[in-house]
């Protein structure tokens, strides 16, 4: 048993990678994401200005030769802030997703596999979680644990957990009744094996799609949280908080919203294309 499990990922991994390499779109998307990572790592080298340095006499200036993307409400260089903001925003877009996926897979599997009361109780818990106002959780965390970035990431991850649980459970549920699962059960395959071999692959596509969608929501949610006192506090830049700050100046200084909005958009597209590619590569039945 241990041998088959050890074998399976290895051959599958190789196939997945081979599959991925065959898709130019996916490679491009991967390159874009990698570029964002590099920008985040080397932000201080790339950014033309200090992202925190204010020029009191040049606030809300439109793009110019000096400031390619203009300046913000405190006279800081928007381009430099977008570059430095990559750090927090990448983290905000990725870590909560990992939290949500990591927790939802086992819970969804159990609910979908066991069904009945176990499923019913778990689902009511997710219903209840959905009904708890995020705002209260955010203010409570900020008050008790302080404005820590990790808490903010956890809060976002937990808040989006119910969606992932329901998707995972729905996918598990859908294959539970499939002939091949019934067959596997009939020949006495262990629940673990059924879960990992049959249910997990079916869960991957919806979770991947949701994960790549959630990146966008999480990046924006990070800013809302920091505005309530949880997470990165001003003046540290993040794309979400730049968007937030731009709202008051939508008409007078539209460039303040466009730059961070555009990078979020590009990152989200790249993550989604990457997710699609991964989905295809994992899709066993296509080959």
């Amino acid at each position: 048993m241990s041998a088959t499990i050890a074998m399976a990922p290895d051959t599958r991994l190789r196939r997945v990678l081979r599959q991925l390499a065959r898709q130019p779109g996916t490679l491009l998307a991967a390159a874009v994401v990698l570029a964002f990572v590099l920008v985040a790592v080397f932000a201080p080298l790339i950014a033309p200005f200090d992202p925190l340095r204010s020029n009191f006499l040049a606030v809300r200036r439109p793009p110019s030769d000096l400031h390619w993307l203009g300046t913000d409400e405190v006279g800081r260089d928007v381009l430099s802030r977008v570059i430095h903001g990559t750090r927090i925003s990448l983290m905000a877009g990725v870590i909560p997703v990992l939290v949500a996926v990591g927790l939802s897979v086992p819970i969804g599997l159990i609910a979908g596999y066991r069904g009945g009361w176990v499923d019913a109780v778990l689902m009511r818990i997710t219903d209840a979680m959905l009904a708890i106002p995020f705002l209260i959780v955010a203010i409570a965390l900020a008050a008790f644990l302080g404005p820590d970035m990790i808490n903010a990431m956890l809060a976002i991850g937990l808040a989006s957990l119910p969606v992932f649980i329901r998707l995972a459970r729905g996918a598990a549920l859908a294959v539970r009744a499939e002939d091949y699962v019934e067959a596997a059960r009939a020949v006495g395959a262990s629940p673990m094996r059924i879960a990992l071999r049959h249910m997990l692959p079916n869960m991957a596509p919806p979770l991947l799609v949701q994960a790549s969608i959630m990146a966008a929501t999480a990046i924006i949610a990070e800013a809302s949280l920091s505005f309530l006192g949880l997470g990165q506090q001003p003046p540290a830049p993040s794309w979400g908080s730049m968007l937030n700050a731009a709202q008051r100046h939508m008409v007078a200084a539209p460039w303040m919203a466009i730059a961070p909005g555009l990078v979020i958009f590009v990152l989200v597209i790249a993550l989604n294309v990457l997710g699609d590619g991964l989905r295809d590569a994992l899709d066993v039945k296509r080959h």
């Binding site: 109780v121 009511r124 409570a140 008050a143």
Partner: peptide
């Protein structure tokens, strides 16, 4: 099964939110 769980769900939730709110 569903309906039987509605009442305990609401009850637990109401305790939770009440407590959380008052701790704010």
């Amino acid at each position: 099964q569903r309906l039987a769980l509605v009442v305990p769900t609401l009850l637990i939730l109401s305790v939770l939110v009440f407590g959380l709110q008052h701790l704010l």
